[in-house]
Computed example of a mutant assay.
Amino acid sequence: MSDKHVHIDWIPVSGPPGSWNKDELIEHVKTGMKIELCTLPLYFCALYSIKEDDSQWASSARMHILSVAEQEMLHLALAGNMLRSLDGAQTLYNREFMPTYPSKILFDEVDMELQPANKANLECFLRIEAPYMPQPKLPTPEPMFPHFIPKYRSIGQFYKELEIGIKQVAQTDPNLFSHNYEMQFTGDEFFDSKMTVIRDEATALQALETIVAQGEGNIGVPDSHYAIFVELYQQRQKWQTVDYIVAPATEKYRNKNDVAYKASAACSLLSLAVDASYCYLLQTIDLCWKEENPARRPLLFRNLHRLMIEILSPCAHTLVKQKLPSGKYAAPCFEFYPPAAGAKPLTPKELFKNLTLELETAKKAAEAANETDTIEAIKKILFCTKGLDPPHDECN
């Protein structure tokens, strides 16, 4: 297996190429993976902010945002399958590839901020998921610079051009999507019939259609992300959200020797645990695209499901209950772990060890502050980590 297309200093594409070829397709698919990865922390952060109560709308809002986040995971997996079928590769657990917040999402220039499910944030989600409207074709004079490459103006336009590129390159290369079937996500492993193993032009276009229809979609598609966020925006006043800190960052939660911090000393450590579990999740996805041994793949997917449901989610839910001296609450940051500047990615065993260490230390801090609810929550998470079996480091 060749990883020749992995880039350390990754740069997204900015516009359609002068002529499509396999290398251009690979770089466009990597950019598609980046787009899908950008949205996951945004939607997770909004999901965790909705307060649990007896309100039907609070439960409904959480369910709808979770469904969108799950579909973004599906889209990321489909884009990764397409990349592997092209014999390309891109590591998600990569400081340069992981998105940072606050920033702007590619092409649409929508602000990406880790904020609660409030009106302003839902407006951002609507802009991200807005259907693509092609610009009307008007008669124009010959361009002064005919070789100029126009920039993408939206995510929808990006995916439309990618479809054109797939069709053009496949015409002259019948073996374009003929690689690494055994390393792709399958429906038996992830998302059932919605998952597509990409083997040819038809399955590549099928995967792209799933991404576009569920994501940008069309105004008439009732279950598209845009339609879901329209409904949530209209009903926003019917649930309460946690009042998050502005521009959350794990560094902001560190003990500043302020007496007020002693009441929530576990906050910084819980934030580090969220970062570590998120990076471990991304690393596990990376391993799924590298592992071809059918006997070892079930272990990776078992870890993947446990990380999402039993580790990352409860860890983040515990974090957002931590009140800061400002009166606002902590929010998950989804940062690269380990946090030290210039730190390199850890092996699976090292990352697992550090995750459990952050949780153990957070539990001790909560015990010192006599934070009973936090102690019990962390105990449950630690118990669930015992079900994880870190892969051998040679898989990394």
Rank of each mutant, 00 (worst) to 15 (best):
K262E: 13
M195F: 06
S326R: 03
E371V: 01
A369P: 11
S178N: 14
L232S: 09
C267V: 14
P41V: 08
A316Y: 01
G80S: 08
K151Q: 14
N121T: 11
Q135D: 14
E209V: 06
P139Q: 10
F336D: 05
P314T: 04
S49Q: 05
L307F: 03
L25H: 06
F352E: 02
E142M: 12
L138C: 00
I245V: 15
I164D: 11
Q322L: 09
L126W: 08
P139G: 01
D243G: 01
N370M: 08
M144N: 11
S154C: 09
L388W: 03
P345Q: 09
V68I: 14
Y132A: 05
F334K: 02
L78T: 05
L355S: 07
E394F: 12
E291G: 01
E163H: 13
L122H: 08
Y280N: 02
S178T: 05
N218M: 10
T100A: 08
E335A: 03
N81A: 06
N354M: 12
A341G: 00
A330F: 02
Y159S: 08
L205S: 07
T318L: 15
P174S: 12
V246M: 04
A343E: 07
S60D: 04
F177E: 05
A247Q: 14
K386W: 05
H75Q: 08
A362M: 04
P16K: 15
L270C: 07
I245N: 04
K256M: 13
A330I: 02
F229M: 11
L37A: 02
E36F: 04
L312A: 01
V230C: 15
A331N: 06
V274A: 15
L25T: 03
Q157G: 11
L281R: 03
A227E: 03
R153P: 00
K34T: 04
T241I: 15
V221L: 12
I311S: 02
P16E: 14
S2I: 09
D108P: 01
L355I: 07
P16N: 05
L86F: 06
N293K: 04
M1I: 08
F158Y: 15
R153H: 12
I381W: 08
Y48V: 02
N257C: 09
Y48E: 03
K238C: 03
F148S: 06
T140P: 00
V13C: 11
E189G: 00
Y159D: 08
E24D: 13
S49D: 06
T31I: 10
R199H: 13
Q56A: 13
S224P: 07
G387W: 11
P348A: 07
Y43I: 03
H305G: 02
G220M: 05
Q135R: 15
W20F: 13
K386G: 10
P332V: 05
Q214I: 01
G165Q: 09
Q71E: 15
F97M: 05
A77P: 05
A276K: 07
L319N: 09
Y278D: 02
C288W: 02
I11C: 07
P174H: 07
A58Q: 02
A330C: 08
Y233W: 07
E24I: 10
A266I: 00
Q283S: 07
Y253D: 02
A130L: 11
D173G: 01
E113H: 05
V110P: 04
D87A: 13
M144E: 15
A340M: 10
L92A: 03
S326N: 08
A202E: 15
N121W: 10
D3I: 12
L25F: 07
T356L: 00
T196Q: 14
E376P: 00
W20N: 06
V110S: 04
M112P: 03
